[in-house]
């Protein structure tokens, strides 16, 4: 009995830290003792904590419902790439004679390309080499070989003139020529469907009959 009363009243702080279970029991016991002697008004003051906990749980339950309905709408939206906005700018360019488009906001810049790049051993077939741009190394990508290898024959010779910087500016798509820019609204594109196995293919700009690149997908392909 003397031990119990010691625990409830005068347990040192260091002991509470070393024995958390005992400390919690002691704290609860103290509260019970206080309730017996404290007026009823104080009891009502102490009730809010559990009520607050319940409210938090309710909020956590209701949030996923809202997310689920949003997700359903998004799934019905033909699995649009995340970067798609209602209206966005697109740069049209040609690779191996085929016009394609890239969202401007996915680019870091445009460089002229002389065709000279340092060759590193063991590079993938789509790598044309490495160049320096403002002291930063940029891997030049043979866009034709990466995106349309089926259209390349032994006789095919592409002479890219420009580089489109993507990613962090450390990758560059080599393209034949740059055509022009255009403003595209979401409805102008026939977006890929969810089963597409080409991550770089975002859809087709209907008016131009040009493939729109998904730069995230291009980077994903490069990283594979």
């Amino acid at each position: 009995m003397s031990l119990g009363s010691d625990k409830n009243r005068t347990k040192p702080v260091s002991e509470k830290v070393e024995e958390p279970d005992h400390a919690l029991k002691s704290y609860l016991d103290t509260l019970l003792l206080e309730i017996e002697t404290i007026p009823s008004e104080s009891v009502t003051v102490k009730e809010p904590p559990p009520v607050a906990d319940i409210k938090v749980e309710e909020t956590q339950i209701s949030e996923p419902k809202a997310e689920q309905s949003t997700q359903t709408q998004q799934q019905q939206d033909s699995a649009l790439p995340e970067w798609v906005e209602n209206e966005f700018q697109v740069l049209l360019f040609k690779v191996n004679g085929i016009t394609m488009g890239i969202p401007l906001n996915a680019m870091k810049g445009i460089l002229n390309y002389s065709g000279e790049a340092s060759q590193l051993p063991g590079q993938p077939a789509w790598s044309l080499g490495v160049i320096l741009n403002r002291d930063e190394k940029v891997v030049v990508i043979d866009s034709a070989r990466l995106l349309m290898p089926e259209r390349l024959t032994a006789d095919t010779q592409t002479e890219p003139q420009q580089l489109l910087l993507i990613g962090e500016g450390d990758r560059a798509l080599a393209v034949d020529t740059i055509c022009n820019t255009m403003s595209v609204v979401k409805e102008d594109v026939r977006w890929r469907n969810g089963i597409h196995n080409k991550p770089w293919y975002a859809g087709i700009i209907v008016e131009e009959l040009s493939v729109l690149l998904d730069v995230d997908g291009v980077l994903q392909l490069l990283a594979a």
């Binding site: 191996n96 089926e150 493939v211």
Partner: peptide, 18 residues
Amino acid sequence: TEIAPVPGAPSYVLGIVN
């Protein structure tokens, strides 16, 4: 009229038309 080729399309696909 214009049949626009599609990169990555299978060989039996000539392209697309609007």
